[in-house]
């Protein structure tokens, strides 16, 4: 084994990439836009850059932000049976468990379908806007991005949407159910959230955070 000076070792580290899933080490060769680098051993996508991915993500994130706020406030579903009417918003649905020990469940549901997706969108904007504008990154951007990635599995908007479909079928023979504006907003929201996740290349974001272009 040859001994490397510490600086050599650090230079070499920049050329290496370790698969976060199976720990295999590869020599780094940045793929072109639209291509993807995958781990040879476990086939995880390591780097998948896209042209203008940052701009796309920001555009989608802004749309998601407004849709979440709209979907949370406007009536979501209305029900009508023999003259009794009821209209609920998503917040009402989340707070349905209020009362007694069920309050925990209320808070968890509200968090999973509204607050976690909302927080992820805000964190994404906070991290990516300076990066895309070629500014030095925002303060604590690194912590923010890490938090946003850690929250990913806890953002369950799309599952809630399927839950709606199931609930509708259950009620439909009991009463007449109508859709409020929030229902359609939420439908679009789900598609956008999935699109946003597929644009995001973690490696590229980390790389940009470490190497701002004009520094």
């Amino acid at each position: 084994m040859k001994d490397f000076a510490a600086t050599d070792a650090i230079d070499m580290l920049d050329d290496l990439i370790v698969c976060p899933q199976c720990d295999a080490v590869f020599r780094l060769k940045k793929p072109k836009n639209g291509e993807r680098a995958t781990c040879q051993r476990c086939h995880k996508a390591l780097i998948s850059p896209r042209r203008n991915a940052g701009l796309h993500i920001i555009a989608v994130a802004l749309a998601v932000l407004f849709l979440i706020i709209g979907a949370a406030v406007f009536p979501f579903l209305t029900i009508d049976a023999a003259g009794n009417k009821n209209a609920v918003s998503i917040l009402d649905a989340a707070l349905a468990f209020a009362g007694g020990p069920m309050i925990f469940l209320s808070l968890a549901t509200a968090a999973l379908i509204i607050f976690v997706p909302l927080l992820r969108v805000l964190l994404t904007l906070y991290v990516l806007v300076p990066v895309v504008l070629d500014r030095p990154h925002a303060r604590h951007a690194i912590v923010a991005f890490r938090l946003s990635e850690a929250l990913r599995p806890w953002s369950m908007a799309e599952i809630f949407a399927i839950g709606c479909a199931v609930a509708l079928v259950k009620v439909s023979d009991l009463a007449h159910v109508g859709f409020g504006p929030a229902f359609w907003m939420f439908g679009i929201l789900v598609v956008l959230v999935i699109a946003q996740d597929s644009f995001m290349c973690k490696w590229s974001v980390w790389y940009r955070l470490e190497h701002p272009r004009n520094s």
């Binding site: 579903l77 029900i79 049976a81 009794n84 009821n86 609920v88 009402d92 649905a93 989340a94 707070l95 349905a96 468990f97 549901t109 379908i113 369950m156 599952i159 809630f160 839950g163 709606c164 199931v166 609930a167 259950k170 009620v171 009991l174 009463a175 159910v177």
Partner: peptide, 12 residues
Amino acid sequence: FVVAILSALVQL
């Protein structure tokens, strides 16, 4: 989520 939606919606 189904339970949450149902219990919020069906309060007639």
